[in-house]
Simulated scan of single mutants.
Amino acid sequence: MTSPDFWNRFSLRLEDKDICVKAVRDRYEDCEVEEFREQGYCSYTLLVTPPKVAFAREIIRHQATAEVKCEDGPALIVQLRPPQHALDLNIVRAASTAHPALAPTIEDLDLSLPRGIRAYEMRKVDGTPLSRLQQHGHSLDDSAGKRLERLITSFADLIAQSWHSPQEVHDITRTARADSPMDERPSMFAQCRGKVGSTMISRLERLASELPDEHLREIAREAMRAIQRMEDYPLVLNHGDLIPSNILVDQNTWEITGLIDWAEAEYLPFGTCLYGLEHLLGNMTISLPGSALTWTYLNGATQLRELFWSRLIDAVPGLEARMGDVRVMRDVGVLLWHGIAWDNGAIDRVVNDGEDVEELVKLRAFLTAG
């Protein structure tokens, strides 16, 4: 195990790593424990592979009278997280309820680890990160086009599932007048208690005054005015980082098989995660060395976006009547996820032309395409 990045990033010692890995190995003494090849920014991940004998023993222990077929057990993931990036177990359990086939059940291992590090166990979700399979450029052959269509319809089904899932808040009616000052928050947003939701209005205010060009600032102002007029709009569980590296797919069909990294999930108005659709329809390109970055949409992206909306509306009766509000929340999501910089976990700075060129390219492209 040779990856020191996580430990250096959070000012942890390599001795802490040795203690943590030993604790996990002791917890799974009959299993193989090794560094997982996919590592996140805010966590260190271990793959736990049970041998046949350990799996058979576990079945016998829990089902003494059952007929046992000696096969390998399911692989597990153990994720180590510093205290500032600990998981909200209520949220991750809600995710596995809302998306039982896509989100793993996560349990706190309650190990005694140094510096407040937490260890979480979860089932290894099948699939390949979409980021490994996406191609650069804009042309697609027929087979790639078919895979992308399946990806888009699968993504629409995922979004529809969030609408139908149990919600923390139902049918919240606005109590503030449309012309109320912005510090009198509409009740819908008063119910958003997570890191993003609880500061959504103030973030939009900052975006409306600090984004680097007038066109973007006006879009932020329009979004603020629009959300003040919303009534009876649903809050749903929002993944929080719906990008290709967190979307697992069947590498042959591109059907979505899982979502990973629910650390930033929270309840937000439906549609705020739709920035994720844009990441499926294009990619960042640079035509020549030294030339400017450009967001390039795939050929057929317009038709694929129409396919997404058609599939979503078919799956959610009555949604068509709220499409104006859904599109507003889609723009709000784009503004919040790409207009606020992510500085090593801090999300309290508006992007600027000097430090955040890539985010501004995405912001301008996504708000134009929506």
Rank of each mutant, 00 (worst) to 15 (best):
D5T: 12
R9C: 00
D16R: 01
D16K: 02
K17N: 09
C20F: 00
D26P: 03
E29Q: 12
C31G: 10
E32V: 11
C42Y: 12
S43D: 07
S43Y: 07
T45V: 15
R57Q: 13
I59D: 01
I60A: 15
C70I: 14
E71A: 12
G73D: 13
A75H: 15
Q79P: 04
A86I: 01
L89S: 09
L89I: 13
I91E: 06
A94H: 11
D110G: 04
L113P: 05
R118N: 08
E121M: 07
M122V: 02
R123F: 01
K124E: 10
G127E: 05
S131M: 01
L133R: 06
H138L: 03
L140K: 05
D141Q: 04
D142W: 00
D142Q: 10
E149Y: 01
R150I: 02
S154T: 01
D157S: 10
A160H: 02
P166T: 11
D171V: 01
R177G: 09
R185C: 02
R185L: 14
F189C: 02
A190S: 12
L204K: 03
E210K: 13
E218T: 11
I227W: 03
Q228H: 08
D232N: 11
N238D: 13
N252A: 14
E255F: 03
L259D: 00
A263H: 03
A263P: 00
A263Y: 04
Y267D: 11
T272N: 04
C273V: 02
L280A: 05
L288D: 09
L288R: 13
G290K: 09
L293H: 05
L298C: 07
Q303W: 03
L304R: 12
E306S: 13
R311S: 11
A315P: 00
L319N: 08
E320V: 13
E320N: 09
E320T: 08
W342G: 08
I347F: 07
I347T: 11
V351R: 11
N352W: 11
N352I: 10
G354K: 15
E358I: 12
